[in-house]
Design a protein around this nucleic acid. Sequence first.
DNA 1: GCCAACGTTGGC
DNA 2: GCCAACGTTGGC
Length: 154
Amino acid sequence: MKNYWLMKSEPSEVSVDDAIAAPRSTVAWTGVRNYQARNFMRDQMRMDDGVLFYHSSCAEPGIVGIGRVASTPYPDPTQFDRKSKYYDAASKKDEPRWQLVDVQVLKKTRTLGLPELRSAPGLEEMIVLRKGNRLSITPVEAKHWRLIVRMLEA
DNA sequence: GCCAACGTTGGC
DNA sequence: GCCAACGTTGGC
């Protein structure tokens, strides 16, 4: 049984175009420093799970692409990189604190913006639309995934 | 374990 | 830039 996820990225850091331009249209999902989001990647994601690529903190926040989980979990290399803003001095090599997965973009879509998501019948319960939600990775229910894919194809 | 202070996220 | 909401830290 496949699971589905919405993953936020700031386009000024890694946009959907950046991801597509990468080898095999695949990027390592570096920089997650929230335990709940990490746990989703480390414990619940599996190869080929569906991913909604979401642009946050930008002019037009929303879903901009569809992809898949393209690796099993492994340690985020930026936690050991002193020059990275994601460097974590408290994380040890033999006991890495932060894990990530690779995400492969399969298709860039039109921008399905927040206002459209909010007004779409059937998506009211999506976690990303809840007031105060800040989680950068959230599970997506299959029925929500199907609705969104349909909206993107329309 | 409580909780105030602080830092971050992210839409607007 | 503002600020609501939330997570983390650290004193007690």
